[in-house]
Design a protein around this nucleic acid. Sequence first.
DNA 1: GCCAACGTTGGC
DNA 2: GCCAACGTTGGC
Length: 152
Amino acid sequence: MNYWLFKSEPDVFSIEHLSKMKKQTSMWDGVRNYQARNYMRDGTKPGDLLFFYHSSCPQPGIAGIAEIASTPYPDPTQFNPESEYYDPKATADVPRWVTVDVKLKEIFNEIVSLPELRANPKLEELALLQRGTRLSIIPVSAAHWKAIMAMR
DNA sequence: GCCAACGTTGGC
DNA sequence: GCCAACGTTGGC
């Protein structure tokens, strides 16, 4: 069982959006970075847990928890010319991007904010907090997961 | 394969 | 809106 952190801009898709979806489950589409895709394609398994992180917003931080609810499959938006995630170089035979379904597990009463995360000495090596990390899919160790769960 | 120019991310 | 730090693109 692995732990992850998935980033999303709440203006586009927030944990509140996820809570209103049918079965509180949604496809996590639009990942268009190779390293993030590789984590998603090669790393995520049904039952894995993820922190739902809100970025590029007034209060950046971890808003709650979701569960990986499918195996990875081709992201349909890459084939849709109407989508902002359309990739003309992707074909049905050779898809380039993948997605997984995620299911809501818990919304934190209060966001565990980025400054709080930075202030926790146990999280010094958390990949999210390293200089230059911009990945939207980031692995989280069991120890880091536990430390963050204690902060909510 | 190199690298300059450009685009994106994301905190502030 | 600014800017640092990446990633991508494309000419050569």
